[in-house]
């Protein structure tokens, strides 16, 4: 399938000895995610959840037409910063993944990779009908219908497309969920990892990455 860079290959070491390289095993960490326990001190956990809810760093990754609805939030009109919402360019430092609209299979693969590269606890906001039931692309051969079969979703925002206000409301909802200690999507993912993986692999035919992208 043209993924020659991932096929096993034999290279010669500087001394001329052949070495077998298995890229997936050699270059990627093979560990699976584990359930990360909450802090055993309740008050500490509550404090942390409060901080988490007030500091939501959003991954700057627009998947569909809804990506355009995120931009106004940074403008003076909506000014999402006042709620502690910021955009980060790298999944390593982000907490919230806004899936902004329809997801083709190809994009889903990137979404999964980025989602897995985020550090827990992490949250997903599904924006628009397409992420809920496929929306207007419900019968397309190439777009998914239900996001929650692939990654855990914390908040759904229905509409095609929802307005920025709706997105803000969604963030408020997410904050509430986090403060209540229900924002455990990452653990959900780890617990039901096999189910999620099976669903993902069902539609992503050329699976060319390790099972979990650290």
């Amino acid at each position: 399938m043209g993924k020659e860079e991932l096929e096993k290959r034999i290279v010669l070491s500087p001394d001329g000895e052949p070495i077998e390289i298995d890229p997936i095993n050699d270059y990627f960490c093979q560990d699976l995610p584990e359930v990360e326990k909450k802090s055993s001190i309740a008050i500490l956990e509550k404090f942390q959840n409060w901080a988490r809810s007030r500091s939501l760093w959003v991954l700057g990754f627009g998947t569909g037409c809804g990506a355009i609805e995120m931009r106004p939030l940074m403008t003076p009109k909506f000014d999402a910063y006042r709620y502690g919402i910021q955009w980060r360019p790298t999944p390593r430092q982000s907490d919230v993944f806004v899936i902004s609209g329809y997801l083709s299979v190809k994009t889903l693969k990137r979404v999964i990779r980025s989602y897995e590269q985020m550090q827990g606890p992490k949250y997903v906001i599904a924006l628009g009908s397409c992420t809920i039931n496929g929306g207007m692309y419900w019968d397309s051969y190439n777009t998914i219908n239900r996001l929650d079969h692939y990654i855990p979703v914390d908040v759904y925002i229905a509409g095609c497309m929802p307005r920025p206000e709706a997105l803000l409301a969604g963030f408020e909802q997410l904050k509430k969920i986090i403060r209540e200690g229900r924002g455990e999507g990452a653990n959900l993912y780890a617990e039901n990892f096999e189910w999620y993986k099976a669903n993902q692999k069902k539609i992503i035919k050329d699976w060319d990455m390790p099972d979990y992208n650290w």
């Binding site: 299979v105 496929g134 419900w138 051969y141 219908n145 239900r146 539609i203 035919k205």
Partner: peptide, 25 residues
């Protein structure tokens, strides 16, 4: 990426059926 079915733009490919079978309606 990794398409194995009939080419999807052929009119004998049933996209609705495919979607229902594949994408958890």
């Amino acid at each position: 990426e990794g398409w194995h079915d009939l080419p999807p733009y052929r009119r004998d490919f049933d996209t609705k059926k495919y979607s229902e079978e594949t994408y958890f309606p």
